[in-house]
Simulated assay, not measured.
Amino acid sequence: MNTRWKPSVTVAAIIERDGRYLLVEEHTPEGLRLNNPAGHLDPGESPEQGVARETLEETAHRFKPTAVVGVYLSRFQRESTGEDITYLRFAFCGELGAFEPNRSLDHGIVRTLWMTPDELRASAAHHRSPLVLQCMEDHLAGRRYPLDVVTTNASVLIDQG
């Protein structure tokens, strides 16, 4: 019996301001964890649209992606259930926009916080995945790729009208 392998596609915002990175603290099955503003790509949206949506939902800030930091493939095995998940993550940096103070944060998000690279490195045991640190390190190293390195065919986009 053949089962097709289908990695979970996620998007993440790597947001730096004044030498600090924006993170979210969130409830997970493994306990309270730190993550970049990130989440699953929804049907009918491009990765750019997805990262803008996820950032707004998790931080109450608008976000405009301006570059791709990297594309990452990682595997996670949940100790409690043995679930085996592969993630394909598109990480973007960009411009942090307006804060919407009346917006509630997404379910499970406890708070947002700004951390220095050293604080992020020191807290690695509390990261949701090793990609949190990897994305920051790649951003610090100056990795930037044009947005058009990721093409979303029109067939993916759902008419929202």
Rank of each mutant, 00 (worst) to 15 (best):
V24K: 10
T28W: 00
E16I: 03
R33M: 07
P29W: 03
V51M: 10
E57D: 08
G44N: 03
E26I: 05
G70I: 08
L56G: 03
E48Y: 12
P47R: 11
K64G: 13
E58F: 00
R20V: 05
P37F: 02
L32H: 07
I15P: 03
G31R: 04
L41K: 07
V71R: 14
E16K: 13
I14V: 15
E25M: 11
K64F: 11
G50Y: 04
Y21F: 15
Y21D: 07
E58L: 00
V69A: 14
P7S: 13
S46A: 14
R62E: 13
S46F: 13
I15Y: 07
K6L: 13
P37A: 06
G50I: 02
H40I: 12
V51L: 04
R53H: 07
G44H: 06
A52W: 01
E48K: 08
A12D: 03
P37S: 09
P65C: 09
G39T: 07
A60T: 12
V24D: 01
S8I: 13
G44S: 02
V71W: 00
V68E: 03
A13F: 03
I14Y: 06
S8Y: 09
N36D: 00
G70K: 11
H40G: 14
N35S: 14
P7I: 12
E58N: 01
T10E: 13
E54T: 05
P65L: 07
E45Y: 02
V68M: 06
P65N: 04
A13K: 04
A13W: 06
D18H: 13
T59K: 12
A60Y: 07
I15Q: 05
S46I: 10
G50R: 11
V11L: 02
A13P: 05
T55I: 06
P47G: 08
H40P: 12
D42V: 10
A52I: 05
V51T: 07
L22K: 14
E26C: 02
E45P: 07
V71T: 09
Y21L: 02
A52K: 03
